[in-house]
Design a binder for these strands. Structure first.
Lengths: 191, 191
DNA sequence: GATTCTTATTAAACTAGTTTAATAAATATC
DNA sequence: GATATTTATTAAACTAGTTTAATAAGAATC
């Protein structure tokens, strides 16, 4: 769990004893390609850290997948809204590759935060980080064209395009496979 | 500062002594309509609580305002990204009405969080709340049509339409004044 | 209360996407 | 390596927005 430890410490100082206390609640979990961590109607009570692999986070709207996010190495993730509210989820968490995650239950997260002020701070700061990412996402959705968002994704997460089928990337960008194909054509013609 | 106290306690339990410690750092501030709490190039070091009034949060892109949010009664707000990163802001915080806010400096927030585990928890939970709001915003931007988003805003924050000019609401919804006008026409014709 | 300034609507031409369907290319399976 | 299946591209018709410009309506000011 070295990279989990490293990632936590990239947020804030955590003493060895607090770290040891926190990490002992994490469990290693292997998910085969095509398997689900979560399906609609299920309850999500775990928080995950992606050690290796790729999980897509999506809902089905009118019969087609709406991809919210691709979680890859180093991501903390869960389906936060139902996780917080303790209600049924409406989303899927599906492995797009054989993946390894570390999981911790909500109860244990709370235990850890109660026990360690330092780790509660990590919790706050990682939430803050997530805020910033979402905030930038909103600005991108509002201020950039689909073409610009495609180019930005290509720049920021180039490996995604080797790992994930294009129609899922189209969905992530908020358009249809046909729409993305048109954009790519337009770009290849230098317009 | 009763409503500030009440709002904080709606997140988590805070003892009287911790609350008293925290609240003493807040300063009351009155902003006249048209005045700014923040302009591009400025540094934002305060966190605000809106006691009464309305502040618009926007950037200027290609000469027109892009409204991110309208902060009204009960909102905690700042320009979080530059606040966290301690970099220059690119945004405006402008009072659309005479407003009363309570402000606390970043240094004092940190002092409060150091002193009180309970208030650090409030910080984490309010960040979590903000996450959820932003998350829902992203889903709305992705999955709803402009018309649906207009109707949803009308339902959730009806008073906004009496307080704020329509072209700013258009901007908030991510469209032009002409576009919003068309949507309203379409709806009034029952389509 | 007339004038000025701001805000909202309408019209017309345009654009970047959509949908549906057909085809082509790539990948997996027997 | 042929066949079936999945994924990507292309075409054509359509749609919900855009831009620019003119007009109308409302609010503020003298």
């Amino acid at each position: 769990m070295e990279d989990l430890k490293k990632t936590i410490r990239s947020f804030t100082h955590v003493s060895d004893s607090d770290m040891e206390y926190g990490l002992k609640f994490y469990k290693k979990k292997i998910i085969k390609k095509g398997a689900y961590l979560l399906k609609p109607g299920g309850y999500i009570s775990d928080f995950y850290f992606m050690k290796q692999g790729c999980v897509s986070y999506y809902t089905i709207e009118d019969g087609t997948a709406q991809v919210m996010e691709f979680f890859t190495e180093g991501y903390f993730f869960t389906d936060l809204y139902p996780y917080i509210q303790e209600i049924q989820s409406e989303s899927y968490l599906e492995a797009l590759e054989d993946s390894i995650v570390y999981s911790i239950s909500k109860k244990d997260v709370e235990k850890v935060f109660d026990h360690s002020h330092q780790l509660e701070r990590f919790g706050r700061l990682s939430m803050q980080r997530t805020f910033v990412i979402n905030f930038q996402r909103i600005n991108q959705l509002r201020n950039l064209s689909n073409q610009e968002r495609y180019l930005q994704l290509l720049e920021k997460r180039p490996t995604l395009f080797q790992r994930v089928p294009q129609y899922l990337i189209a969905s992530y960008l908020g358009l249809t496979p046909v729409g993305l194909s048109k954009i790519r054509k337009r770009l290849s013609e230098g317009r």
